[in-house]
Simulated assay, not measured.
Amino acid sequence: METLLHESGDSCELVIVDGGMSPGTARLVSDLGRSVRLISEPDTGIYDAMNKGMVAASGDHLWFLNGGDESLVRWSQLSAVLDAHEAAVILGDFVLAAATRDRTRASRPARSMWHALPTSHQAIFYPRAAITGRYDQSFRVAADYDFTARLYASGVPFVVEHIVVARFHLDGTSTQHGKLIGAEARRVQRETLSVHPAVSVVSGLRHRAARRYRSMLSRGH
């Protein structure tokens, strides 16, 4: 995030939530400057941490990156997109770092929400003014899908901007908990999106195929 912070001046705020487990983070924050805030205290998991960051943030849009994720976008490009869509959820593109090479993935249209997030959560920018809830911690791995689906179901506008904004690595939650993601996705489809059961079955088959594909990528195939 250092390049983005440097380019944005005081226009970009970074809130770091580290669970109180990394003494080196405080030293890093002091080097990054006044636009960085550290919340270093125990939490109950990733969605609790993301909720804390959401409450602390003061920007017009929220962007969530996890440990190990990388920002790839320049501030001039990002600020233009954010200014053009002040009230919308913005879906960007991302880079998936697999075993042997990076793969760029384009966002799908928002209507694909019936199946899953249209893009990686690392490539979504949320308008703060439209957010009325928090990440539901009853989900173990799919609270980001639920959070985004609730905004979609409530009528918040969604737009796709094909700019590559972030890189993340394949060895994370999506690979380790593929079956659980599918199960929790069906809950979101049922409870939040009111997807027809037959359509949810089709989504389940697609999730299964995606798990096989991610497994192949993680092995370098």
Rank of each mutant, 00 (worst) to 15 (best):
S71I: 00
E70Y: 01
T104H: 02
E70N: 09
T119Y: 02
T132N: 07
A129E: 05
T173F: 12
E191C: 08
R111H: 10
S40F: 05
S154I: 08
L170P: 03
I46A: 15
L78V: 14
S215I: 00
A123Q: 13
R211Y: 05
T132C: 07
S71E: 08
S203P: 07
V165N: 03
H6F: 07
H169R: 14
V160W: 03
F158C: 12
D10H: 11
T173H: 10
V17K: 11
V165D: 10
L170G: 00
S22K: 07
L217C: 14
Q77G: 03
H196C: 05
V95F: 08
L5R: 06
L38A: 11
F147N: 01
H169S: 14
G45A: 05
L96N: 11
R187C: 12
E7R: 04
H61W: 07
S40I: 00
I181M: 12
I124V: 15
I124A: 09
Q77I: 09
A116C: 00
S22H: 09
T148I: 00
V81E: 00
H6N: 02
S218G: 03
L62W: 05
L217V: 01
P118Y: 06
E2W: 02
R208E: 13
S107T: 07
L5G: 04
D18G: 00
A149R: 06
L180R: 15
G24M: 01
N66F: 02
T25C: 10
G24E: 13
G33R: 05
T3E: 08
M1W: 04
V202C: 00
M216D: 13
S200Q: 03
D69V: 02
V188Q: 04
V201E: 15
H221W: 15
C12F: 13
I39Q: 14
R128A: 07
L78T: 13
S8D: 02
A97Q: 10
H169T: 12
E7Y: 04
L180F: 04
M113D: 13
Y213E: 15
P157S: 14
V202T: 00
G220W: 02
H162M: 06
V165A: 01
M50K: 02
L38I: 04
V29Y: 01
R187G: 07
A87T: 15
S215A: 08
A56K: 12
L4A: 09
P23Q: 11
R186S: 15
W75A: 05
E161V: 15
S35I: 03
R150A: 06
S154D: 04
A166C: 13
G172Y: 14
G133C: 09
A88S: 15
I124P: 10
A80D: 15
G92P: 03
D83F: 12
L205Q: 06
T148A: 10
N51F: 06
L91Q: 06
A210E: 10
V17E: 11
A80P: 02
C12S: 05
A116G: 04
Q137I: 11
Q189K: 01
D146Y: 01
N66H: 11
Q77D: 15
L91M: 14
R27C: 05
A129T: 12
D171H: 13
P197C: 04
V164K: 14
R212K: 14
R219M: 10
A142L: 09
D48Y: 11
A142Q: 00
S8M: 03
G155D: 11
S203R: 00
G155S: 09
H169K: 14
H196V: 08
L14S: 02
S120T: 10
G182A: 13
N51E: 12
